[in-house]
Amino acid sequence: MELKKLSEHIWFMPYESERDRPNLGYVKGDNWSLAIDAGHSDNHVKEFYSLLETEGLPLPSLTVITHWHWDHTFGIHAVNGLCIANEKTNGHLLEWKSKIETNGPAEFLAIHESIRKEYAGGKEVIVKPADILFSGEMTFDLGGCRVRIVESESPHTEDSTLVYIEDDKVLFLGDSTGDDFMTGIKDMDLCQKLGAKIKMLNPETCMEGHWVPVPTEDSLEELYK
């Protein structure tokens, strides 16, 4: 696995299908840096950080979460600095933290084979909520690089956060353009609302959670399928 540079301020660790690991994004400004999503486990985070260190990049001071699903969040306990998520995302994390601490990880491990591969050998499952909560929209100035995080309705989950790097015109979508993981349903009304949000931000490139960077038109076409 190698760290890929996407634009002036952006790098990413590519997704992996076998363990259902999503892309992990990294944005560096002149003053500080942030990551996008916290990964499937502490092993995922450690591998990501090792790639950053190899490239001479500082570890992120902040990690932004795109939605609550485990492959994007169950590495939160291992991230450097603070983690920010919207209130709905944090609610789901608190629910799963309670379930696993009360009943053990069996229900979680039963969801999918990719989870059992990530946590093979009896690896401990640790769920931690975010450190900072936001609602609506926030903007960060990393130093010569502005990042907007925007809540959005989406067909995939009720708690999607989009991450837009304005100066590079790159939008991290998480898994927001996909259908509902549990039901397989892709609600067209929610697709239209997400599409409107994407068009409002007007990125040139979109990065979905489990795919390569593509022109925005390609992501919109996938969304409306």
Rank of each mutant, 00 (worst) to 15 (best):
K5T: 03
A38E: 00
L220Y: 09
A85N: 07
H156A: 15
V214Y: 05
K199A: 08
K193R: 15
G209Y: 03
F140C: 07
E8G: 09
E151R: 09
H72C: 06
L82S: 13
G75C: 01
A196G: 07
L3Q: 10
L82M: 15
N31L: 14
I10S: 01
I36G: 01
A38R: 01
N90K: 02
P14S: 11
D42T: 00
A130R: 01
V79A: 00
N86E: 10
D187L: 07
T54M: 10
V150A: 12
T157H: 14
D37N: 14
G144S: 02
V27F: 11
C145F: 07
L34R: 03
D20S: 10
H210L: 12
G144V: 04
W96R: 05
N80D: 11
S114L: 08
K128R: 13
S61W: 11
G144C: 04
H40T: 07
G144H: 08
P22H: 06
K28I: 04
G136R: 07
T102G: 02
F181M: 12
E8C: 02
G39Q: 00
L133Q: 09
E113H: 12
E87C: 13
I198H: 13
A196L: 13
N43V: 10
S17C: 10
I10P: 02
C83T: 15
D218W: 06
I65L: 10
Y15G: 05
K88G: 05
A85G: 07
D42V: 00
I126M: 01
F12L: 13
E221A: 15
M200R: 13
L93R: 01
N103C: 08
S33Q: 03
G136S: 03
I149R: 02
K197G: 08
H9D: 09
D179F: 14
E137T: 08
D141T: 14
S41R: 00
L52H: 01
T66P: 06
P105M: 09
E87Q: 11
T54P: 00
E95C: 09
A106T: 08
D141K: 14
P203F: 09
T102A: 14
R148H: 15
L162S: 09
L94I: 12
Y224S: 13
G75R: 02
L220C: 07
K88R: 13
E101P: 08
Y15I: 03
S17A: 14
I84A: 07
S154N: 11
N23E: 11
T63P: 05
W32E: 05
I165Q: 05
K123L: 03
A78H: 04
L34Q: 08
D218C: 10
K4E: 14
V163H: 08
W11I: 05
L133S: 13
L173H: 10
S135M: 12
Y49C: 01
E16D: 14
E221H: 09
E87Y: 12
F140H: 13
F48G: 04
F172C: 04
D189H: 12
D180Y: 11
L133E: 14
N80W: 06
S154H: 09
L94Q: 10
K186N: 13
C191K: 06
T205S: 03
H67L: 08
T89G: 00
I126D: 02
Y164R: 12
M207R: 02
R146L: 14
D175T: 11
D179Y: 13
R148M: 12
A106Y: 11
D141P: 11
G104I: 05
